[in-house]
Design a protein around this nucleic acid. Structure first.
Lengths: 137, 137
DNA sequence: TAAGAATATAACTAAGTTAGTTATTATTAT
DNA sequence: ATAATAATAACTAACTTAGTTATATTCTTA
């Protein structure tokens, strides 16, 4: 399951990427503009920083800015940064296959299904989203 | 998330389909052969019956039998019967799009990703699994 | 240098989900 | 009748999700 946090992370990156490069935005502003609880924004900014996509400046007049080309951040990466590694089934989380190998022709099928899903997410990046939003406006 | 119940449901159908057509098997036997908690087997048999795939005979010498061609039951159907309609994101469960249409270019992407995943599951049926298991043996 | 503004981190909570258990009822062959 | 079996429903412990609350740390500017 892709959680709301993952969606929020994507939205935050999109917000940052929709300003001129180098612009800093405060977490409060992000929260306000995108209607995300401030505390969640703060939590997620830690994740984005950890991933190396953003940088923060403290103190008055501080804020967050994107330090990665938004075209180089795809949705799979963001989702996995926010939610941890993806698994459409619990069995895909454990590296070991089920005890009962015999009956587990399923693992391969789950894995294929998941890969097809991830492929779609990999094909979309943050820049795409910014552009899509621009078209709507 | 595809739950364990969905996996169990698939395994139960596979077990039934791997016996000669018309054979009845008791829930205890299914549970024992496939190492599934008896009570869960019972719960899931209700689902399979509801879906019209199986039929039960009560009383001594009773049991469950498959009344549908295993080739006509695909994994997507079984997963959705056991877990309810699939949604890789909460937003795909609600028919209404987010309040904030503007920022929700995401919905379409989630939906595409999910469809690709489901396509894989639709391409595999219970008979396929029985045959795959037969090869391994 | 002290105060205010911001990031950063951690602990906590309510609601919902999952996986499984327990208990009860209904049906049928012997 | 009774024992074996399916069918149904209610309950529970552990976990996850989404969000809140509280506190610590750092930087800037007045």
């Amino acid at each position: 399951m892709i959680t709301k946090k993952a969606e929020y992370a994507i939205i935050i990156l999109t917000e940052l990427a929709s300003n001129p490069p180098g612009t800093t935005v405060t977490s409060k502003e992000i929260a306000f503009r995108r209607s995300i609880p401030v505390n969640l924004v703060v939590q997620l900014l830690a994740v984005l920083k950890e991933a190396g996509w953003t940088e923060g400046t403290r103190g008055p007049a501080g804020g967050i800015r994107l330090i990665t080309d938004p075209e180089k951040i795809n949705l799979r990466e963001v989702v996995e940064a926010a939610d941890g590694p993806m698994g459409i089934t619990r069995c895909l989380f454990s590296s070991a296959p089920c005890r009962d190998q015999k009956h587990c022709s399923l693992r391969g099928i789950w894995s294929r299904a998941q890969q097809e899903m991830l492929k779609v997410l990999e094909e979309v990046n943050i820049k795409d989203l910014v552009e899509a939003a621009a078209l709507e406006a």
